[in-house]
Every structure is written in structure tokens, then in C-alpha cells.
Design a protein around this nucleic acid. Sequence first.
DNA 1: TATTGTGAAGCCTTTCACAGCA
DNA 2: TGCTGTGAAAGGCTTCACAATA
Lengths: 213, 213
Amino acid sequence: MAKYPKIPEATIRRLSNYLKCLEDLENRNEKVSSSALLANMCNVNAAQVRKDFAYFGEFGIRGMGYNVKELKFNIKEILGINREWKIGVIGIGNMGSALLVYKDFLKQNYKIVAAFDIDPVKVIGHISERMGRPVEIFHVDRLKEVVKVREIEIGIITVPPSEAQKVANQLVDANVKGILNFSPSPVSVPKHIRLRNLFFTSALDNLIYYLSN
Amino acid sequence: MAKYPKIPEATIRRLSNYLKCLEDLENRNEKVSSSALLANMCNVNAAQVRKDFAYFGEFGIRGMGYNVKELKFNIKEILGINREWKIGVIGIGNMGSALLVYKDFLKQNYKIVAAFDIDPVKVIGHISERMGRPVEIFHVDRLKEVVKVREIEIGIITVPPSEAQKVANQLVDANVKGILNFSPSPVSVPKHIRLRNLFFTSALDNLIYYLSN
DNA sequence: TATTGTGAAGCCTTTCACAGCA
DNA sequence: TGCTGTGAAAGGCTTCACAATA
């Protein structure tokens, strides 16, 4: 299934950033970008930008640069986000609700096709008051069943930290392929499940380290 | 001001993770941890863990491991988060509101001391309905003044992407030291200001790359 | 001419393997 | 004995410098 040679993890992280910058360029009606411009926007070296792309093909035109639209398309293909991904959100508190209506998800191919909570009735009122597009909310006991029927591949955990590992276990049992943990408690899962912990405080910790030192 | 020798950026990122794991261990009443246990929780090599700490001092006891509480204290000191940091949140939509009541910030020394919006009156009603602790909300025109009076050092941007750069400029003008951009649009600031862009989609992009390949 | 694509050099990070020590 | 701290080796990533070319 490996379409490409071994790629540095850092390259994959940067691809997401290039994509955000390309969207920005597109909004400003720029048709073409040099590696130097992209590099500058992302605070990396221009050779780095070219090398990152070179792992996957020759996307540029010598003397000209990269076509913004084409490059965007190619990066999406590389990342695998050129198709729709079905997502379930578990835990409809403040953060979960925010994600349900998060416009940047709607713009991408990320489709939140179901939400879960221990108190779906209370939550339905809470959500409907603030949502444009409705997302059906289920009791978390129905997780496995709904994951199967709605073909959910990715679970996003937004429950309180004390419940995070339990929910992670339930997601594994429900056969999701990947988990994105937004709760501030680290969870662990079997090796065949892909996991990313996204701790908000980490970004602040990091910022503050460089402010202090 | 540089307390330490040159440290790999990756080390700083990992320190945050170790901290989250140590909090987890503390919650489970573990007094001591080996480098191997921490390494396992964070999916890194045990030698890596020891080397990361060794940049800053000798925190462990040979034959025993690391005292959880002490190590936590030391990491917080290294990162500079052993003191209170005053933060302002700009943009009180769904995400901004979620951050205002985000419990993990309250537990740490991150104090959101003011919030800003272009429509603070509408927002006040919106917030008060869902908040325990009140955070005063100002019109964004008062940003510079309030940053000064409340000694805000860090600004968190949670406005829509079209407004992100403008708000970043206002924050720079208001003399914050660091900016954490939660909006999905990259912003740029002068070099003397520390900036972190936190794109939610990046975590998903990354997860999906490894699911696809 | 301007800018990409890339081999090779240089640098940085991780891992190994074991000395040091409670 | 068991686990940390660390010098040295291995590995990987970034940058340089320039050939290739639109």
C-alpha cells in the first residue's frame, strides 16, 4: 500500500502547512508560487520546500515556479485527503460542539457524520440552538453500531480526560482506523490503530518556552 | 537569558508530552517512573527520554527512576510554565467560547484575563449562559488598551480566517510577546514576536496520510 | 533569465552500549 | 541489581551549490 519511498515525518507535517499557505495564495488570486515564497510563508528553507515535493514527483516548472491549484491538488492526493473521510465526534461539550460547526472541516473533505454523548437528549437542545447543519447525536452506547452503519473511519475524542481512555477503547472495539484525541489526557491504543494526541497546552508550552529562554 | 545550551526543538515538544504523561501517572498515584515507562507512554525510545532530561540536569536516581512530582516540577520550570501567564482570547465564536471554559487551561497557569470580539454585547449573553467563571469581554477596538492594563503577554486568535491577519497585526501593535493562532489561516508577524499556528486540520491530515499509505 | 530538481556535504538527532551509581 | 547518564556510532534531515530546463 506504500505508494512512496520512505518519507521524513517532518515532510508530512510540512505538507499540511504548504496546503494552508496555498489556500491563502489562492484567496489572494495568486496563480503561481516559487519555492522561495512558500518557504517564506512557512518559515522554512526554499530547498526544503523543493525537496519535500521532490519525494513525490516533479510538480514545478523551472524558471516559473509551482502552479498553485495544481500543487494544492497534488498535496491533497499525497496526503490522502482528496476523498471524503467520515468522522465521529465523541463528547459534545464545548469543544465537541465547536468542532461540529467548525467551518474549516466543512470546507475540507472531513465529514462529521455522527456525534455521541452520554446524555444525547440534553445535548440535542444544546446543539440545535447553535447549529446550521444538523448532525445526529447518539448515546455513546450505540457507538459500535453507528460506526458500522455510517462507515465511520476516524473518531475524535472530546470527552473529559477521565473518560478519554474508556472512549478510546470503545472506538478500537468499534473498528475505527484512526483516533484523534483532543482531550488533555494521553490515551493508548493497539499498534494497528493510528493515534494522534492533540494537546492544546502543548502549543502554549512550546510558545512559552521560547518566550522564557 | 538563555538558561540552557542549545536544545533540539523536538526535545521541547516532547517535554510537553512527558508532562501530560506524568500528570496521568500522578492521577494513578504512581510516585516513581522509569525512563522506559515514560518512553512507552509517549512512543519514544527510553534513551531519548533520558537524553532529553540530561540537557537540563540530573533528575533521576540510578537504579530507581524519576520521582513523578519532582520531574513534573522540573519540566514546568524548564518550559517556563511554573509561573502564571496572562492571556487574551480574540474572537468569541464557538472555538473561542470553548477555550474560555477549557478546564485544562484553568488547571495550568494559563489565565485568560480578557476576551475580545467585534460584538461584545451579543457575545456577553452568549457566554454568560455557559460559563462558570466570568471573563470580561471587550470590543476588539479596546485591545491595545486592555492588553496594557491587564498585562496580557499572549494572544490567542480564534476569529474567522478572513480576519486573522488583521487581528495578528493588532496584537503586535498592542505589544504582546507571543501569539497562538487557532484560525485556519496562516498569519505572519515580525520576527521579534513568537508565533505558533495551530491548524486542527493538520492533525487530521497527518493521521490520514498514515492511514492511506 | 529565473527557478526547479538533486547529489553531496554538513549538521543535527536518535540510538546504542556501557560506565556509573543508588 | 536495576536503572540513569553519556560518549560514541549510526542514522536521518537539512542545506548547499549547481546542473537542468522552461
